[in-house]
Design a protein around this nucleic acid. Structure first.
Lengths: 332, 332
DNA sequence: CTGAAAGCGCTTACAG
DNA sequence: CTGAAAGCGCTTACAG
């Protein structure tokens, strides 16, 4: 591989000068610059990133911490984020974390061995050690899709509770009174969406009933099937269900269909997230749309600013969501 | 950040020795090793990856070249690959490439600036320059999901043509005679799947008809809707369609449903890939399952071996696929 | 505008 | 088993 020294030798100049033109610094004689540029082209010289990172003490890469079992919403989100990050000149490294506690420590360990420029959390890390580390080394961080707990880490998200409230209001507006909920654990949004559900019921004068609530392990279609079977086992006396996630909703519809229960004729289902597939399935899913593109762009931009040392005023960005009414909900 | 020298100073030994214990080399006095290990623990020392990469002249990272518009099958595949790669101790860097020719050059450019240990192609690169570069620098490479063209790059894939043949045979076995095809461009598998379709038709004594074939731009559900509308515009005289991709099939079903045409009662649809969602939608999709897990694992393993310098005998691994009969196909 | 020199944090023969 | 020394490829004051 050709190095900066090789180039220097060939043009009879010092490595310093070559470095200057490679990095587009000024104070270089225009003619020499031309000459050097031509030679770089000819030889196919590319700077050695490791050497550069080493002296600069940064790596131009940001880590994205994401659940091992990421759902489609998170999948779509991370490719948007990675796209923007790339346009800012960053590499991105993925850190998958499982739900077991040990996995968070592993993740932290891996994080330490990289000299990241910044990190984005798409997964809600619990371990305080994690946040202590971030603070200790002053590693810029942005949380996407979750409100930060107490820590002073900026986050980009939607008002989950209010959105869920609106979703359930939509059901109530359609005349539904017997509304079940299918949500999941592990993440705070599962709880917040359940909170919005409860508040909507309350504000409509409906009483909450533990028999109408099931919390499954994850947020997948598989989990949705499991949860709906459980709901069916308990009591068939519901006319609508609020699924905390589109995938949960898809699994729920699957089970209902298998039982010969028609959606939305007999049961209305509303999801949350508006993943790609939701507008193609039969029936098209009524859901809450999170502004994926916006979340992704702002997350990447905010992190970039923090890496550059800017301290943006806004530390908690709450973005608007949207109720998307399609075919899976109907008047009771 | 604490460096190897700091540790050396604190224990009164040389950096060489510290390096040896950090890298688990032998020839170190057991007691000193203990002492050093303890200090590393205490100080939270982590080796500087950039420095290490630089002297070792490798980066322990592999690049994954993937289409910008990757579909769900590719999405699932790359997370499996990344998972295995991580277990081998590699980082992975994504290189998204668009369909425009220029994008391949960009990708090549980026590839050059990284000192990758290896690369995996999930996207069918056309540019010969790309392969020339790989050969020139001796960069290990494995292709997944495509048969390599002439180049001597090992690849892991399924017999696309034969699988498509089987898919269409399934339709024929169900009594269908008027079978349309919905496929896409840009990738060789789109053509190979179409070839299998043609051969199945031929072997059943059915004549091929350009009016029954539509090729759309991509392989998404969106494209599937577009393609099915086109098919409908031409002639409603078909009882089955072979969609080259599950997502294409999902879009096709969507349009049929909107037109009041029942699947599979009036039209049978078969897909290809068996993406996650295919077993949850209504109707469940009949499709060809590609052995995702196996492809991912073998791809990662094969690349790892090549990086280590082993030249495995098998350069073209053809894996078995499986016809998954579900609900979207029925007797005519 | 330009070069000599030092240094980033590690590894690896080489000589004990 | 261990240390001194050189070197990986770059950048950056510093002195012209």
């Amino acid at each position: 591989m050709v190095s900066i020294k090789d180039i220097a030798k060939r043009v009879g100049m010092s490595p310093s000068t070559i470095s200057r033109v490679v990095n587009g610094k000024k104070y270089v004689n225009p003619e020499k610059r031309e000459l050097i540029l031509r030679l770089i082209e000819e030889t196919g010289y590319v700077p050695n990133k490791s050497a550069r990172d080493m002296v600069l003490k940064r790596t131009f890469t940001v880590g994205i911490v994401i659940p091992d079992t990421f759902n489609m919403f998170q999948r779509q989100l991370f490719s948007i984020i990675e796209h923007h990050l790339e346009s800012f000149g960053y590499h991105t490294l993925f850190f998958f974390v499982k739900f077991e506690g040990a996995s968070e420590d592993d993740c932290l360990q891996r994080l330490k061995s990289e000299k990241l420029d910044g990190v984005i959390l798409l997964h809600e890390i619990k371990s305080p050690r994690f946040y202590e580390y971030l603070a200790a080394v002053g590693l810029p961080c942005v949380i996407a899709t979750f409100a930060a707990a107490e820590q002073r880490i900026p986050s980009i998200h939607v008002n989950e509770e209010q959105a869920a409230y609106d979703a359930v209001q939509h059901l109530i507006g359609l005349g539904h009174r017997k509304i079940d909920i299918l949500s999941g654990g592990s993440f705070s949004f599962g709880q917040q969406r359940a909170d919005g559900y409860a508040r909507a019921l309350h504000s409509a004068g409906l009483s909450r009933d533990a028999g109408r609530e099931v919390f499954v392990k994850s947020y997948s279609a598989e989990a949705g099937m499991y949860g709906m079977r459980e709901l069916l086992l308990r009591d068939r006396d519901f006319s609508a269900v609020f699924a905390a996630t589109d995938e949960l909703a898809i699994g729920a519809i699957r089970v209902l269909e298998d039982e010969g229960i028609k959606v939305p004729d007999q049961v209305s289902i509303i999801g949350f997230d508006d993943i790609d597939i939701s507008s193609y399935i039969v029936p098209r899913l009524t859901t809450i749309r999170q502004p994926l593109g916006d979340i992704g762009e702002r997350t990447a931009t905010l992190l970039h600013k923090r890496i550059l040392g800017e301290k943006p005023a806004e530390s908690d960005v709450v973005l608007p969501y949207e109720l998307i009414i399609r075919e899976s909900t109907a008047r009771v």
